[in-house]
Design a protein around this nucleic acid. Structure first.
Length: 111
DNA sequence: CACATGACTGACT
DNA sequence: AAGTCAGCCATGT
């Protein structure tokens, strides 16, 4: 299914279940643009202005760091929302990230 | 039109 | 193990 790259990013981001997180690279890889992880980040930059809200707080970098929290309404919104879903966040980093990691390639498959 | 920047990642030192 | 470098591609100046 061919859609705009940005829309695909938002769609995958919205598919992330509560209490789970994913990474830019995982999304990029799922979209077949593993080398454009930065583009995913750019897409997320506009996520907050999208009409259908995008759970960008569930998207972190490969180390589980909340690198984009500063782009939220407030720098605390991201961590608060994650904690509200039961995700432990310490020093802008997701605890058990490896366990909470939600890989679209594995969870959704390639179709 | 060319250079700099960025919510990133993987490889190398 | 931690820090540094280069590659990626769209957007802004």
């Amino acid at each position: 299914m061919e859609k705009d790259f940005f829309q695909m990013v938002y769609q995958v981001a919205r598919l992330v279940p509560e209490g789970r997180v994913t990474s830019y690279g995982a999304i990029a890889k799922y979209l077949g643009a593993a080398r454009s992880a930065r583009m995913v980040g750019w897409a997320m930059n506009q996520a907050h202005i999208q009409d259908p809200p995008v759970p960008a707080h569930r998207v972190v970098n490969s180390k589980g760091l909340l690198t984009g929290k500063m782009h939220f309404e407030t720098p605390f919104a991201m961590q608060e929302r994650l904690e509200a879903e039961g995700i432990e966040v310490v020093e802008d980093q997701v605890k058990e990230f490896k366990t909470l990691f939600w890989d679209p390639v594995v969870e959704l498959g390639w179709d």
